[in-house]
């Protein structure tokens, strides 16, 4: 490697890491403001270090679902809690890969809650990644059902709140087909 190439590589690496650290400093403001600086570091993900702060998540998000037949006039079934359970074990202290799936679903549901509280239009929400993720997960949980359509409901539950203020319905989805037609290959 020629000295000039070595100098160039050193400069690129130093500038990149410094820019990323600076962007991390600026993005990690005390409150959860959406200061997205990724565009200034070529899309590089910037870590968020505000763990459980300023307002820690103190609620459980429950995924409820119900199904019905083909006709819109069909009476829907009752809402059922299909939230994936959290597994507990002593080994979780060192290795807990089973927490990733429920965490991803929890984060998606959390994002939908934020959209709903911000009065996002339903037409926009149904095209969002979290909505599609929750839809797919719910569809997966209901695959053995003898029905053609389903709907999900997100319910926040605050265990530390006063009785009567613990449950807060967040979002009811549209009715969606339970079984997707296989994609035809050409």
């Amino acid at each position: 490697m020629t000295p000039s190439v070595a100098r160039f590589a050193t400069t690129v690496a130093s500038v990149a890491l410094t820019a990323h650290v600076v962007a991390t400093v600026l993005q990690n403001t005390p409150d959860s403001y959406n200061l997205d600086l990724r565009r200034y570091v070529a899309g590089w993900t910037i870590p968020g270090w505000r763990f459980f702060a300023p307002n820690p998540g103190v609620h459980n998000v429950h995924l409820l679902a119900r199904t019905r037949g083909t006709e819109s006039s069909d009476r829907p079934g009752d809402w059922r809690d299909v939230t994936p359970p959290t597994h507990h074990s002593m080994l979780n202290v060192l290795f807990n890969p089973r927490s990733r799936g429920p965490k991803a679903l929890f984060d998606a549901m959390q994002q939908l809650s934020v959209m709903q509280s911000n009065y996002s239009a339903m037409e926009w929400m149904v095209t969002s990644l979290p909505y599609r993720l929750v839809t797919d997960a719910t569809r997966g949980f209901l695959q053995t059902e003898d029905a053609t359509q389903f709907q999900f409901l997100l319910m926040n539950y605050y265990p530390a709140a006063q009785p009567g203020r613990r449950m807060l319905p967040v979002l009811v989805s549209m009715w969606m087909p339970l079984h997707l037609a296989p994609e035809s290959s050409t």
């Binding site: 650290v21 991390t24 400093v25 990690n28 005390p30 409150d31 870590p47 270090w49 505000r50 763990f51 459980f52 702060a53 300023p54 307002n55 820690p56 103190v58």
Partner: peptide, 16 residues
């Protein structure tokens, strides 16, 4: 940064 930011953000949180 991770420890410092996490601490400062918590000091802005009422429940902390």
């Amino acid at each position: 940064l991770s420890y410092f930011v996490s601490g400062v953000s918590k000091l802005f949180g009422s429940s902390w």
